[in-house]
Design a protein around this nucleic acid. Structure first.
Length: 423
DNA sequence: TCTGGGGTCCTAGGACCC
DNA sequence: TCTGGGGTCCTAGGACCC
């Protein structure tokens, strides 16, 4: 029964443009502070902190720094006196990202944001306005620069995977178009690491079969890859041949995750074996996750707790929530029941996290018959409004209070504090 | 001086129901 | 009473991406 699937998947070719903001965080910081130009800039944290590089300027990359590298290692590679280390400002990045999206939506209504610094455009209908896709790309580049001062790189191709690979080769600041019909020639000799979905583990497995290029992979019968890698094998096979995989075939802009989640997690400043620290931090994270949940008008069906041990082994446990009509207290109770079960090894903890699963729309109805539940929810909503004005840390439930500095105790498990405590 | 945070997708096994 | 199969939901964990 493979034929109907193949027919369903993109019988009609399309032209996709993948737009990516160069060194996004660093570029936003430089737009605000010109003194950061022309020298190594690293966003992610300070050199002595526990963390990794989120974004590095090209001057920093010239010293061997890359995203994902531990900050301490980056600090050793870059000249101490000239390098700027920054925590980053998520709100500012969010605003810049919105501004760029607004520009892109001026080109086509079919825009799909893939992350803060990436968006995919379906070019159907744009033909009349441009003599070629390269000309269209130049127009996008100029418009984004004009509106925001930021530079983009652009990849153009007939599938998401081809556009992504073209983009990788276009960086920094360039444009690369792979024309229809030329995909096979373009992909044939490229190393496997360019193929989206072929991460370290998969490449290791493939290299044992002497598969080194995307062309090598495309030459293997799909059934063979399916037998070895399951659905992932089919996805990789199709991408390697310049075809849309099932995952990639949906209309641009209409992506909906099958199993969306909201998660909040954090590494502790120091590994701990103190249950109070773990409980306090998880309470705090659960409240943040719940706050986001309400902000988006959603309800959750289950909650999970994740722990990472000092040796980097991690574990998670999940529990179905009694009702989806919940307030923070119900989620907190579930989290408190979960983490002691989850913490099985006698090893210190370095990271804790909370995630909400099975999200669905929360309809605003008149059916809140239970006064207690209703009251709790009104309380949650009131707390959210205060947080909107004064920052998340201005109101935190009892057990998380110990995590915030210099916050006195208050009635009802809540605390009002000055906004400066929020960060 | 090791190794962030927020996600998506897939698999596999067990429970439960018909 | 015993047995089996299929579907669906739930949970744990792995791989991958930006």
């Amino acid at each position: 029964m493979t034929a109907p699937t193949a027919l369903r998947l993109r019988a009609r070719p399309r032209d996709l443009m993948l737009v990516d903001l160069d060194c996004f965080y660093v570029s936003v910081e430089r737009a605000r502070d010109p003194s950061l130009r022309g020298r190594p800039v690293i966003v992610g944290g300070l050199p002595h902190e526990r963390g990794v590089v989120a974004s590095a300027s090209y001057e920093a990359r010239a010293h061997g720094v890359h995203a994902g590298m531990p900050l301490a290692q980056a600090a050793r590679l870059c000249p101490r006196d000239r390098t700027a280390f920054l925590h980053g400002d998520h709100e500012a990045y969010l605003r810049a990202s919105h501004d760029v999206l607004a520009v892109l939506e001026g080109f086509t209504p079919q825009v799909e944001p893939l992350s803060l610094d990436e968006a995919l455009l379906d070019l159907a209908g744009c033909e009349r306005h441009h003599v070629s896709w390269l000309a269209a790309a130049a127009a996008v580049h100029a418009a984004v620069r004009e509106a925001t001062g930021l530079d983009v790189s652009i990849g153009i191709g007939g599938t998401r995977a081809v556009a992504r690979i073209a983009l990788a080769m276009a960086k920094p600041g360039g444009v690369l178009e792979v024309r229809r019909g030329e995909e096979a020639a373009f992909l044939a000799d490229l190393p496997l690491r360019f193929l989206p979905g072929a991460g370290g583990r998969t490449r290791q497995a493939l290299e044992r079969f002497n598969v080194r290029t995307i062309g090598d992979l495309g030459a293997i019968p799909e059934e063979v890859l399916e037998a070895t890698f399951g659905r992932t094998g089919i996805t990789l096979s199709r991408r390697a041949r310049g075809l849309d995989a099932e995952l990639d075939a949906h209309t641009v802009g209409e992506r909906t995750a099958k199993r969306p989640t909201i998660s909040r997690e954090t590494s502790l400043a120091r590994d701990t074996n103190d249950p109070r620290v773990v409980d306090g931090m998880l309470s705090y994270l659960a409240q943040r996750a719940c706050s986001t949940l309400r902000e988006r008008g959603l309800r959750a069906r289950s909650v999970s707790v994740r722990l990472r041990y000092a040796d980097f082994q991690s574990t998670a446990m999940r529990r179905r929530l009694p009702s989806t009509d919940l307030c923070d207290e119900d989620v907190l109770a579930a989290v408190r029941a979960l983490w002691p079960q989850c913490w099985q090894r006698r090893v210190k903890i370095r990271l804790v996290g909370v995630a909400l699963h099975g999200l669905e729309r929360r309809e605003e109805r008149q059916l809140d018959l239970l006064a207690s539940v209703d009251g709790e929810r009104h309380l949650d909503d009131a707390v959210d409004r205060i947080r909107e004005r004064h920052g998340f840390g201005s109101v935190v439930r009892g057990r998380a209070i110990g995590l915030l500095k210099k916050v006195p105790a208050s009635a009802r498990g809540f605390r009002l504090s000055t906004p400066s405590c929020s960060r």
